Amino acid sequence: MCRQYLVSLGVVLLALECCYGQNWNAWGNWAACTASCGTGTTSRTRECAGPAICTGHTAETGSCHHAVPCEWGEWGPYGSCSTSCGPGVLTRFRNCENGNITSNTCVGSSNSTTPCNVRECPQWAAWGHWSACSVSCGPGAVITRARVCNGNGECAGNSTETGSCSPAFLECPGVWTQWVGLPCSKTCGPGTQIRTRTCPAPGRCNGDSQDAILCNEQVCPGTGDAGQWSEWSTWSACSETCGRRGRVSRVRTCNSETCVGDTVEEARCGRQPRCRRRRRRRNCRRGRRCRNRAQA
């Protein structure tokens, strides 16, 4: 039974009551069992004959049984290890013969696993000690440490790491620029040369910004200024140990190239002992005695 009303603006324009029957056609035949052994499922369908919409389901399922039990086939070979390094598993499969493997008609699991380990995975060694601080003061102060990857392959992560260190909070002293020298106060002869430098951080550099050094210490040409000799050294030992031919010498040095005189002075040795003479045997004539004669 059904009752239909059409209402517009609160006024019943049309009232139509109609009655329709709900008629299903007969169920169809059961489909083939999903399993050829053991227990499976089957289904069948029906259609609504109308003219109204039918309530209910158009299909239903049920279980089906075979007298022949399902059995597992032989295990297949194991596949590859599930990991390239470290602990993993090998997996193999088997089929439920004469049945559908997804229908659980065979008792047991369709796969089995066993542990495997192709090789040990690379591992990081312990971190090394922290390095010294990269700077002694000012910003940018860091410390670093490193570790080594042991084993074949690459370890996940970084081999080094950095950290901060306390000198970053210390104020650095200033650093002078290079000295810049002015010309010598004289073109020849002893003079002075002023040189200056700059501190980029005023008040933080240690030392003076200006100093003076000697320059042009050589004597000017044509001035007649002579250099200064040092004191004579002591006399050397006599060049001979005897006789009157020996000589002794002494030296002095000049503080420039303009000293007048010699740097070396020689003299005869003092009294020396006489040198001993060597003697030789003269040829002797037959019948005469040989005698020795001194050889100068």
Rank of each mutant, 00 (worst) to 15 (best):
E47D: 15
N152D: 12
C106Y: 02
W127N: 12
C149G: 06
C259Y: 01
N255W: 01
C133A: 12
R274I: 07
G270D: 12
T45K: 11
C290Y: 00
V11K: 15
G56I: 02
N111Y: 14
R288L: 11
N111Q: 12
C85F: 04
T113M: 08
T196D: 08
L182Y: 08
F93T: 10
T41S: 14
G108R: 02
A201V: 13
C205V: 05
W235Q: 02
E154V: 14
V89G: 00
W75V: 07
T196N: 11
S209Y: 04
C172M: 11
C121R: 02
P69C: 04
C137F: 06
T58W: 08
W229R: 02
N23V: 13
N25H: 12
S82M: 10
C172I: 07
G50R: 08
G287Q: 06
E265R: 02
G38P: 02
C220P: 02
C96M: 05
R293I: 05
T162F: 10
C96V: 06
T83L: 10
N95G: 04
C290V: 02
P51L: 12
R291W: 08
I213R: 06
N98W: 09
E74Q: 13
E154I: 10
T45P: 00
G40T: 03
V118T: 05
C172Q: 13
G88W: 01
W229P: 01
C284R: 13
C18K: 14
C48E: 10
S8W: 15
I213D: 10
